[in-house]
Write a protein that binds this DNA or RNA. Structure first.
Lengths: 83, 83
DNA sequence: TTGCTTTATGATCTGCAGACCATTAAATCG
DNA sequence: CGATTTAATGGTCTGCAGATCATAAAGCAA
């Protein structure tokens, strides 16, 4: 599971994908993440104003994580930056 | 540039890092992203309620992108999922 | 240290996310 | 098909993000 996300829609798709793979209903995910089923529905359909913390709540519940990467390089070497 | 992000703080750090690498002031980034300097400041300091669209605006302006990945595997093979 | 640039803070106001309830629509299955 | 599980919609209310302006606090030169 590794999904590029440049829009809220991409994020929604990634979350839905992960949820389905784990065979969870939105309600089940709601229970384990503390995010309402109605909210999950909106997010999976690409709600642009979704709050970061909400995304992270869902990521945590789905055992996902987020990475911010350089668009050009598309490098995959994690955690090497120090500046 | 490739930063793991599990919290709004991580996101803020990644954005600040990228901005500094490109030697942009918050104000310069504000101009080119359409996000206010004050808002950028808050985000870089880990504001949890930041909206997804705002993050994407900044990512676009900084030539960054986001990836949602499986926490356990840490796989790097992008875009292979179809379900 | 003075002065400029950059970043952080503070206040007000508007708009919308998310909690929460109920209900409808859709998908799934016997 | 009808019954049931799952997903989407709709409404109200509260809280907070972000726009916008102004200003304070840092940083960083000369």
């Amino acid at each position: 599971m590794n999904q590029l996300a440049r829009t809220p829609n991409d994020v929604g798709n990634a979350l839905r994908l992960a949820r389905k793979k784990q065979k969870l209903s939105q309600q089940a995910l709601a229970t384990r993440s503390g995010v309402w089923q109605e909210t999950i529905s909106k997010i999976e359909n690409g709600s642009p104003g979704t709050r970061l913390e909400t995304i992270f709540d869902l990521c945590a519940a789905l055992n996902l994580e987020m990475a911010i990467t350089d668009r050009s390089t598309g490098s995959t070497d994690f955690l090497e930056d120090t500046l």
